[in-house]
């Protein structure tokens, strides 16, 4: 009887201890901001903000955490563990269509067309030759749409005429190199790796799609997302954070070469010269640009267009979400 009581007490204490330790770890300091992202150039402003101490100047302790995929980043933000991220527009629209209301859409920090393209292996130089061939890319990413648009423009049915293969972002170059797929479509830095393989031919770029021709953007532009609960909890803090972010962005815009040197090797594993060359094609949108871009004449029209493709052509979202409900530009007025 005594040991029985002892055990019960022990178990109870253990459970209390567990709860206690969990609730303790949950309390992170209020000035800490978790930002998530990949190796993509669109994250440079955040990296510079950390490296140049701009966030610190505004009183933020920003922690960078790598999450490769857009939807994973969005989920991290929705769960409340991360606060801010740049990610692909398609993941954002898709989450909206499925009823995720835990974030605000607060901006579009850049235009960087010409960074994702469809590359075919040796011996394939035209779309016609792609018939019956295997094309690999990560399903659900911007390239999913770019690929479909390019195929359709050249009279190929993505469902019947080719075999689409789902690959992890990081696996695309290596699988392409072994010749196990006939073509691949991916964005930087993977794209450069595809092009550098002997005999590879670029069949089409995102700049060849109707989306670019109509709106001048890439298929899945970079969007800025912030956790809703965190913003609502302290509006001024959110504004101060966005101010710090755009100050970093402006610094990058004016000092691209120095910015690249600061981040190369630490956040991106690519040759300095390649990043330098690529970054020249980047058009950064500063705080003033946001008021112009976050409108129906700007990116909203493009978003409507993409939503139609997702809902009507690809049938991957159950409805056409009214994304304007997620837009919060008040955060940008400071």
């Amino acid at each position: 009887m005594k040991t029985w009581l002892f055990r019960i007490t022990f178990v109870c204490f253990f459970i209390i201890f567990l709860f206690f330790s969990i609730s303790c770890t949950d309390k992170s300091p209020s000035n800490q901001v978790i930002v998530v992202g990949s190796q993509w150039y669109g994250h440079i402003p955040v990296w510079i903000g950390i490296e140049k101490g701009i966030f610190k100047k505004y009183g933020f302790d920003v922690k960078w955490q790598f999450i490769g995929k857009s939807m994973d980043r969005l989920n991290a933000i929705s769960s409340g563990d991360a606060h801010f991220a740049s990610l692909g527009e398609i993941a954002m629209l898709s989450a909206m269509a499925h009823g995720n209301t835990r974030f605000y859409w607060v901006g579009n920090q850049d235009i960087a067309p010409g960074f994702e393209g469809l590359v075919a292996k040796e011996g394939i130089t035209s779309f016609e030759q792609l018939k019956g061939k295997k094309i690999g890319f990560p399903f659900g990413a911007s390239v999913d749409i770019t690929c479909r648009l390019l195929l359709k423009q050249h009279g190929l049915d993505p469902k019947k005429d080719v075999r689409l293969v789902n690959l992890e972002v990081g696996d695309v170059p290596s699988v392409f190199q072994t010749g196990r797929i006939d073509a691949a479509i991916i964005w930087e830095p993977g794209f450069s790796q595809l092009v550098s393989i002997d005999g590879a031919t670029v069949l089409g770029m995102d700049t060849d799609t109707e989306v670019y021709k109509k709106f001048g953007t890439m298929t899945g532009p970079d969007v800025l997302i912030i956790n809703k609960a965190w913003s609502d909890e302290d509006r001024l803090r959110a504004k101060r954070f966005m101010k710090a972010y755009f100050e970093s962005l402006e610094w990058v815009d004016y000092n691209p070469e120095e910015a690249v040197k600061l981040i190369q090797g630490k956040y991106i594993n690519q040759d300095l010269s390649l990043i330098q060359k690529n970054i020249e094609k980047f058009i950064w949108h500063d705080i003033e640009d946001q008021r112009r871009i976050m409108t129906d004449n700007g990116i909203f029209g493009q978003a409507d267009y993409i939503i139609r493709i997702l809902h009507e052509d690809m049938k991957v979202i159950p409805n056409k979400p009214d994304f304007r409900k997620w837009v919060n530009l008040d955060i940008l007025s400071f």
């Binding site: 995929k69 939807m71 993941a91 989450a95 499925h98 399903f139």
Partner: peptide, 14 residues
């Protein structure tokens, strides 16, 4: 398995 992975990419929890 594929269906679960892609559903995740499209945020389709159902």
């Amino acid at each position: 398995g594929f269906r679960i992975w892609t559903a995740k990419e499209w945020s389709d929890t159902g």
